[in-house]
């Protein structure tokens, strides 16, 4: 066998591709499901935290910033293991996909809060004052005047951060969530061949390249509009 066909046989074996396509597809579906759940809950909770921070109640904000900092400084896999192994021992049993979902949502919420808060700060004070003096209430000002401007500035960094955190769904494999990587490594150890792993890697690329390209597009637009 020459090198090329040995390479194909190791990473792209046709019968293994056929055999493992269903399980990789199922894993892809699981990854998409969990990723979407994380994006929705993470960003909404982050927005909620950023709004809470605008009230500027000192003790609340100190606690909020401390928690956000911890979530930003901690490797997600540490949090996953902590929750996954810790909670059952104190009588709380939650399924492993829920552990992944909760932990990554909290991490995303922390980063989203920081980014959105920076966006809110970047809206000039005059915008607040003008809106309030024309009779807008605090919430109306926040919702109709400040947030629309703040959110626009934060879209590119938020997209990139969201992408980075949803990629962490691969950590699910460590606690047995049947997502892409898990299906791929299982397939690899059953077949004794790297083809399922290659299929998994390809599934990730197909899934995330559009998001990377979209983030790049947003960044160029953002830069262009800022000049």
């Amino acid at each position: 066998m020459d090198t090329w066909s040995r390479f194909l046989d190791t990473f792209f074996k046709p019968e293994l591709i056929r055999q493992y396509l269903p399980s990789i597809a199922k894993g892809t579906f699981t990854t998409i499901e969990i990723a979407l759940a994380i994006v929705v809950t993470g960003i909404l909770f982050g927005l909620f935290l950023a709004v809470v921070r605008t009230f500027r109640v000192l003790p609340v904000n100190v606690l909020l910033v401390a928690c956000v900092d911890v979530m930003r400084a901690m490797p997600p896999i540490v949090l996953v293991l902590l929750v996954y192994f810790g909670l059952p021992n104190i009588g709380i049993n939650i399924p492993s996909f829920a552990v992944l979902w909760i932990v990554l949502s909290l991490v995303l919420a922390a980063f989203a809060e920081e980014i959105l808060w920076a966006g809110i700060l970047s809206v000039p004070k005059g915008q607040w004052e003008t809106a309030r003096s024309t009779g807008f209430g605090f919430f109306s000002t926040l919702i109709y005047i400040v947030l629309p401007q703040a959110v626009r500035l934060t879209v590119p960094p938020l997209t990139n951060r969201t992408l980075a955190i949803t990629k962490n769904t691969a950590l699910g494999t460590v606690i047995g969530v049947p997502e892409i990587l898990n299906q791929a490594t299982t397939g690899q150890s059953f077949s004794g061949n790297a083809t399922p792993l290659m299929m998994g890697a390809i599934a990730y690329v197909v899934l995330f390249i559009p998001v990377v390209a979209f983030g790049r597009f947003l960044e160029t637009r953002f830069r262009w509009s800022r000049v």
């Binding site: 990629k167 962490n168 691969a170 690329v205 790049r216």
Partner: peptide
């Protein structure tokens, strides 16, 4: 873009 699309854990295991 390719290496930003692949989760680091996947790359490592690969």
């Amino acid at each position: 873009d390719f290496f930003r699309a692949v989760p680091p854990l996947v790359l490592l295991i690969f």
